[in-house]
Nucleic acid binder design. Structure first.
Lengths: 123, 123
DNA sequence: GTAATATTTGAACATATTTTCATGTGATCC
DNA sequence: GGATCACATGAAAATATGTTCAAATATTAC
């Protein structure tokens, strides 16, 4: 629906099913929550990071071994690990000059498993 | 470990735990699978798309109502719906000039639920 | 102390993603 | 038929993201 808001400006105020819209809006989670949700999924949404997490789902690994497993440079892995750390998805411990990373909790493990179900079920 | 591969070139051949590396590599899924996995998570990895999917997890909605719920333009929603369609995450039906979208299957619904668990559990 | 190793960091670059805006298409209403 | 509405699409613009390379930090070995 086109509505005139000034002599020269019009605006669309569409809502085909206003009741449905307000019901769904009411049930929508706060923006902050949805952004955090999206951030979590984003973390899994890059092949390198998905591989890192899948590898860590099996065993604790140090940066250089992760780089070898994933097939990218250590620097690239380190940058990715920083975002995973910031999201609280991985934790680490230092042993001498080697830093071992592992999954922060089982949430990620089950998200990965469920995502793989979907990705591997095939047409 | 730095290895000289030519008079002027050196290369790092790091592997702190070679056995672990080969074990994890052996269990790693094919690259194609991991890319598809990442693609699926990417779809959920944008706030607008996450909101769209969360809304559709409740009810079938048309494009303009989705735009209203999510708080972006219809054009933007339409573009996002195209990527969700391409990934087989949503389906749609036409009713006159209105197009109603809904979730393609329950996979996404459970991924969303599980992601929300993580996003809402606090710190 | 110096040298070497494992990792982190910063900045530049390349690439991808998202939104906007204008236009195109299909359907209904008159 | 023409006008309008709901949606889709393309290209440009604005952002964001990921990798690379060089340099910095932390730890150990000597």
């Amino acid at each position: 629906m086109v509505v005139k808001v000034a002599a020269t400006r019009t605006v669309h105020i569409h809502t085909v099913n206003p009741k449905t819209v307000s019901a769904v809006k009411r049930r929508m989670r706060p923006n902050e929550t949805m952004v955090r949700l999206a951030d979590t999924f984003s973390a899994l949404g890059d092949p390198a990071r998905a591989k890192i997490l899948y590898a860590l789902a099996q065993e604790e690994l140090c940066v250089c071994d992760l780089a070898e497993v994933v097939g990218v440079t250590e620097s690239a892995v380190s940058h990715q690990l920083r975002v995973l750390r910031a999201l609280g998805l991985v934790k680490y411990r230092r042993d001498g000059r080697v830093v071992y990373y592992s999954l922060a909790d089982d949430h990620v493990r089950s998200l990965l498993a469920q995502g793989l179900d979907h990705a591997e079920e095939r047409r």
